[in-house]
Design a protein around this nucleic acid. Structure first.
Lengths: 162, 162
DNA sequence: GATGAAACACCTAAGCC
DNA sequence: GGCTTAGGTGTTTCATC
């Protein structure tokens, strides 16, 4: 078995890190191209990528889209205050039905659920907020509209485990 | 020039939409595989993908990583209240230096800057918040820690235009 | 203007050392 | 981890509609 220099902490081999950096920049890069950057042969890169997928470090590969080019011009955070003690499963099921939702998390503090979403325009956003407010478990909402995006970096894109 | 069924609104051809859906699920899928789903030949798919890249709809392809598997277990939102009228450029420059920051946006409301970040653990998060607080233009911060991620969907991953 | 078939170069994947 | 090879893929060209 291969010695894992990362150990149980989840830290990675420097070569694995370099490979992930290249894949983050261009996930369709060939193993040979990645290999020439990290000084490894193509098969060696493939083996490491396969292993990273097996380990669950790599969840998959996806396309980076420009939402504005697709007509999604409005971005907002909507905080949900829930009535009584609503279970996370109920929240998740309800919120998942909205294609506008990018992420939804239960959080510490007054707010029960923090939602990050995109809408085509303000009119669309208004309708989404109304529909969120209409959910049975939602007591009230508080919205914050994004004025300008200063930093945008890659983040996890896989669905959370059930 | 090609007739754009999308028009100036930014909406897409149904075939382009289908191709983007496939790429969102697996950005390393072969053009032939995508073609068999959308009923197009591999060259036709490639030409459409090339055109989507030229148009800026596709910004690139990236890897989806599991932060927990990489040792990033803590996720939080930090709201920054800025002293006086700090320019967005100053905010951006300062915040960009933090590798922990996933996104930073100027927003409506009391808060001046909303930051989404990941840290290895609570101790790490605490240090990041301290460092953010130490920035010259930061009056105070308010933090919200993510308890559990209910929904996580792909979002833009390209850097915002300067 | 867009598509599909074919040709070639390149890459992936699975075997070897 | 590198090398080799067989099969698959990306990319270009060309004819067709």
């Amino acid at each position: 078995m291969r010695t894992d220099p990362a150990g149980p902490t989840g830290l990675l081999d420097p070569l694995d890190e370099a490979i992930l950096r290249e894949l983050a920049v261009d996930a369709r890069a060939s193993f040979a191209d990645i290999g020439s950057v990290v000084s490894l042969s193509a098969p060696a890169v493939k083996r490491r990528v396969d292993r990273l997928r097996e380990r669950g470090v790599i969840r998959g590969f996806t396309v980076r889209l420009d939402p504005a080019a697709l007509g999604w011009e409005t971005e907002a955070y909507v905080e949900l205050f829930c009535s009584g003690s609503t279970s996370p499963v109920v929240m998740r099921t309800a919120v998942e039905r909205f294609p506008e939702v990018i992420s939804a998390s239960t959080v510490t503090g007054d707010v029960d659920l923090l939602i990050h979403l995109r809408a085509r325009d303000m009119r669309h956003l208004e309708r989404v907020i109304e529909r969120l407010n209409a959910e049975a478990f939602v007591a009230r909402t508080r919205s914050t509209i994004v004025l300008s995006a200063l930093v945008r970096r890659p983040d996890v894109q896989g669905s959370p485990e059930p």
